[in-house]
Design a protein around this nucleic acid. Sequence first.
DNA 1: TTAGTTCGGGTTTTT
DNA 2: CCCGAACTAA
Length: 777
Amino acid sequence: MNSPHHFLDELNSAQRAAAAHIHGPMMVIAGAGSGKTRVLTYRIAYLIEQGIDPFNILALTFTNKAAKEMKNRISKLIGDGDSRHIWMGTFHSIFARILRIESEKINFPRNFSIYDSADSKSLIKDVLKEMGLDDKLYKPGMVHHRISTCKNNLISPADYAADAVMVGDDRSSGRPRMAEVYAQYNLRLLKAGAMDFDDLLFKTNELLRDYPDVLHRYQHKFQYILVDEYQDTNFSQYLIVKQLAAAFQNVCVVGDDAQSIYAFRGANIQNILNFRKDYPDFSLYKLEQNYRSTKTIVEAANSIISKNRDQIKKEVWTDNDQGQKIRVHRAATDNDEGQFVAGQIYQVRANEQADPSEFAILYRTNAQSRSFEESLRKLNIPYKIYGGLSFYQRKEIKDLIAYFRLTCNPNDEEAVKRVINYPKRGIGDTTIQKLMIGASERGVSLWDMMDRCGEVGIGGSAGQRLSEFMVMIRSFQVQLETKNAYDMGYLIAQESGILRDLFADRTPEGIARYENIQELLNGMKEFSDIVDLDFPDQIRTMPDFLVDVALLTDADQEKDEEGGKVSLMTIHAAKGLEFPYVYIVGLEDGLFPSAMSLDSREDLEEERRLFYVALTRAEKEATISYALMRYKWGQPQWSERSPFIDEIDPIYLDLPAEDKSPKRSAPIDFQSQRNDWGTRPSQPAPKTAAPKPTASPSTPIAAPAGFKRVQSTSSSSAAGTVNADVQEGNEVMHEKFGKGKVLKIEGESPDLKATIFFPSAGQKQLLLKFAKLQVLS
DNA sequence: TTAGTTCGGGTTTTT
DNA sequence: CCCGAACTAA
């Protein structure tokens, strides 16, 4: 034992106590900027130094980037020979790896595909179409969200169908077949050998539940478990951790309830409370000293978060200087806001010799980036946008990756649909429709149906093209295990014709697309060149690459290559980052807090935590701005300043003169609303109760957050009855085209189609069940 | 089957 | 305003 633990001495006493805790359950509640990542890395380093095998450590982070960074920092402390063997990554990527290893147990191919949200939604659309459901009523996005919420709470399709509350809820909102859609969606995933994001966790739970030997094996492999950003875990993740930690109970969770900003995707702060119940003898460590920000920023942030009812008490404080007041700027328009911020950055940069990388512009929605881009460009300030369309969501990248996926897993239906006729090879919609119908009738995958396309009357040139396509894919497949990811990728890009197709497009966008493909291939080269020191002879293949790539997100992008740039990103993306100068923009009522959050206290509190996260990113100076008018879909839109501004104690603010006037035009009185919500008489039984920690995976959970009342969407029925008596020759009034004369009515009820002549708009064909018509004569 | 057009709807936030 | 879906013409 080497007695001077030099690296632990670099911590303050609270941090050191947490980092030196080895055995038994522990929780670290860490205020913003209090060095939580530091504690995690030092603790892992310390564990290893104390002789614990890195092979037995599992560290779950929120992003891949966080994992990578932490690994680097650990290897700086103890050398990378040891740190290499730690299993460190996001829940999704770690358990995707494990599911791949155990794939045969859960009836999935080893190279199962991972569907991203776009794939999931596309599949849902298919399912709806096949079931003959209206996708205006069953909106794919909404259906997906509902299914996702279920999966995150471990509610299977069977549980769903058996749950009277949820089924009743669906029935009353006019969507009685929701449970069926869910079941069908899962069936199609199974047939395609694919999992969506939520399945990666759901199936892990099933695996651990149904295979005690597997559970036992991983319990003994992962004797020390650490979870970062614990406040952002959902029930499914919670239960995985609980099961894995059950044997040794060496589980360490780190989080900050004040920074929980992912409830909308199922994160459950209640997991923190569950932890207390599951491990009554756990040790609690609180990190309350902030090292990041000025007193002004820390105290202003405290004043914001104190408005929330749901929170764990803690006192975040700092020894740092008081610093500048937070400047509030009121701009006339979104463009003015952009110019103001860019101008400020220009000035501060000149006055303080600051590098562009010291600035961040944070907004609520990605769409807000435009005006800042423009203004920064005009002043020649380099910037980088994080988020928005991530690299892997670009069409050309998704297309090529679809070829990769198809090669690794021919049953991947979303991949087939994407590339079967791209680049154009004369396989049109009719052929694809025939195949899809045939496949679903026979219960086989699209690919298998292609093999038997004669059965659905596809022959001649279409059949010929189809078989050429299959021959090509098969020629890729046979090389899958012998070629590395890069060689394989290059071959596919070439042979599929994608490279040629993109090269032919000489527009700037076309050139950019071509370069993106090059970049993807470069990335694959890098990936393929990595040598696993423990298995130096093993090649890194395309399936290996796909597991990584499917779960990479924009937050994982490398900081940046060369030279400093101003960072533009959503507040969600800024989580965990820090900048000397932070601009929080678009502080308008309805934008931030989002209009969607205004009718529930929980949602509003999440917005408030988001604001807290934004402000606490700042080290030296924070500036807040808002615009009285901004364009939305090309239309001007006026708004009031955000009530959040008024929630900050004004002693920390540098307000513009207009905003100091005590009489304000009736902003929401949040104080009194809070009281209303405290008792909430209008709400029937506010079931905020968390899922019971002891719940078995199949226990349905009472009304998860996403399940609040669904707005009624039935407006077309009224129009239908009105239109029933439209006759040929009638004069009618249309809300958009004005007066018109009915020339002809054809088709069968309820699909009656009318040909109407409108003097103002010409002749139109309208379906009576949809058109809003008034009969005049 | 494809290319060219119109039309309607979408903006929270993301693994 | 911008994208994809749906429709129309060749």
